[in-house]
Design a protein around this nucleic acid. Sequence first.
DNA 1: AGTAAGATGGCAAGTATTAGAGAAGTAGCG
DNA 2: CGCTACTTCTCTAATACTTGCCATCTTACT
Lengths: 324, 324
Amino acid sequence: MASIREVAQEAGVGVGTVSRALNGSGYVSPETKKKIEKAAKKLNYTPNELARNLYHNRTGIVGVVVPDLDHPFFSALVKHIEMELYEQGYKTMICNTVGISRREQEYLDMLERNMVDGIITASHGLEVEEYQKQTKPIVSIDRDLGARIPLIGCDHEKGGELAARLMLAARRKKVLAILGIAPKVIANDRYTAFMKMLKENGVTVKQEVMEWNIFNWEAYYKFAEETFRSHPDIDGIFSGDLAALACLNVAQRRGIRVPEELSIIGFDAMAPSSMVYPQLTAVRQNVELLAEVSVNTLLDLVEQRKNVPHRLILDVEMQPGGTA
Amino acid sequence: MASIREVAQEAGVGVGTVSRALNGSGYVSPETKKKIEKAAKKLNYTPNELARNLYHNRTGIVGVVVPDLDHPFFSALVKHIEMELYEQGYKTMICNTVGISRREQEYLDMLERNMVDGIITASHGLEVEEYQKQTKPIVSIDRDLGARIPLIGCDHEKGGELAARLMLAARRKKVLAILGIAPKVIANDRYTAFMKMLKENGVTVKQEVMEWNIFNWEAYYKFAEETFRSHPDIDGIFSGDLAALACLNVAQRRGIRVPEELSIIGFDAMAPSSMVYPQLTAVRQNVELLAEVSVNTLLDLVEQRKNVPHRLILDVEMQPGGTA
DNA sequence: AGTAAGATGGCAAGTATTAGAGAAGTAGCG
DNA sequence: CGCTACTTCTCTAATACTTGCCATCTTACT
């Protein structure tokens, strides 16, 4: 509550001197400095960050926009982003868009209003144009938002191929791929690559499409039940972790033996994939690295430290499990 | 970028008029209002939130402090807190303390520096005294931080009793309770109640203690393996969801039939408890309600809307599953 | 002792906004 | 015509801080 003015009065100096003494900039004699520090301590002075931010025109806050925080991939991503930002002296503001593009837009507006110094977005409900209007630092995860906005993502193509190889090794013949519906997202490349490799090897690949950025276990479960009803003859499933886990659960309930009769391969390999028995076989994204790279790329932009590459693709690997 | 001054110049009026026109306060003629709006649009004017915040001495930001965002309970909690705060016009800043009390302290400092209008804390690494020093709005989840800080939590006692009843119904005789290590947290009441009821009915109850606010599946898994080694004769386990899931997984791997030979009951009933087969039997906390109540209690303090009760305990229920 | 260099600290402007005082203008009414 | 009431708008202070500039003071050297 105590302002810098009160400290100055207490110490018998001007406000500027107090500022310089406490910030260590400019000339201040050791005695006055000591006097000022004593006064500050006595009055329990803490500088008002708001005034500071106004002057410097920065807040040290980074906005992180995700579709759904209660989704194992995004919660892990945000956790690691927050920790990395903290290491670098920034704070994290979050936004769950839960499919509402208005919320995504509002975060872009906050950039404009100087409430945040930059944005990392992993939510993709808005048109690309809205992003391209922005001039302030933005980094995108998994979606190409144009030349000015760096894109960070994992090697979905390689992930699709790794999954396809496993399907081939298990001699699967009728495989189902469950795609997410988000358009223009590089995550779709995993299916393109997966299907391409399987088709080249004479395997039949069917597709289903579902919304999967919003985490709703009920919906996954119903979808899985419906899938087994409409595709009773499949012997392989490739999808995101959660849909894969739902399929595994339904298969177990129906007495389908996994992996003997059915291979299930997930994508992401987040924590829940290890909780089930048998553990889900899944392509693993390195979320920690993804978070670290995203943060560093963004801060390179914010602090204009250096030019950043437009596209950064991270490696993936197969998490061995008992379902393929 | 354009400031209110530039808009005023463009429209040929004073800055105060622009402020009033755009904020709808005080007298502004329709024509000048239109003129100003046109000028604002032309210059692509957005008010600088920083200056606004300085004047009003508020940011509209609420800090949410949790031990680990990548923990199903906390990620769900934060998600719903964020959504509720958004409904009420606030933004959410998060902090993963991951066991580092310094980080918790820094958030308290941010309160003092006016960076956040209030704090909801579910992390309990700091001494109660540190919180009591604060005069600004704080709400605590699951831990009593003194008379001035409202406490929100679920009915852990009832949860413990519900679990005990199930153990009794299944005629379990040697039961293990796995406790969290956080002291002075009302979550411990569930074990007190659980053990009391079982002991009164002649059931042997052993205890183990583990850190469980930090989410690390490996650690849970190892702990579960160790548990089965050191307690080969138990026929019931009551613990938090994740430890329960780890125990279920290890039991399945060891060929122990659940629930025939062993009852496992979790606490929280978060999403992963439904992903496994059979679904985990667990006491369910209503996270959505917890989030809503926490937010409303905090905002009652922030906006001084009304006096808030010091202790709010929410109901729990049993999620039926296949493990007890 | 005078001068110059260097150290020190106060003043005020700048940051973008809001609120409130008050000025200026208009209209109605006696 | 003057008074009052009302609308409309401008101007200034206030918010809390940082920083550049300038004035003052000290010290040392000639």
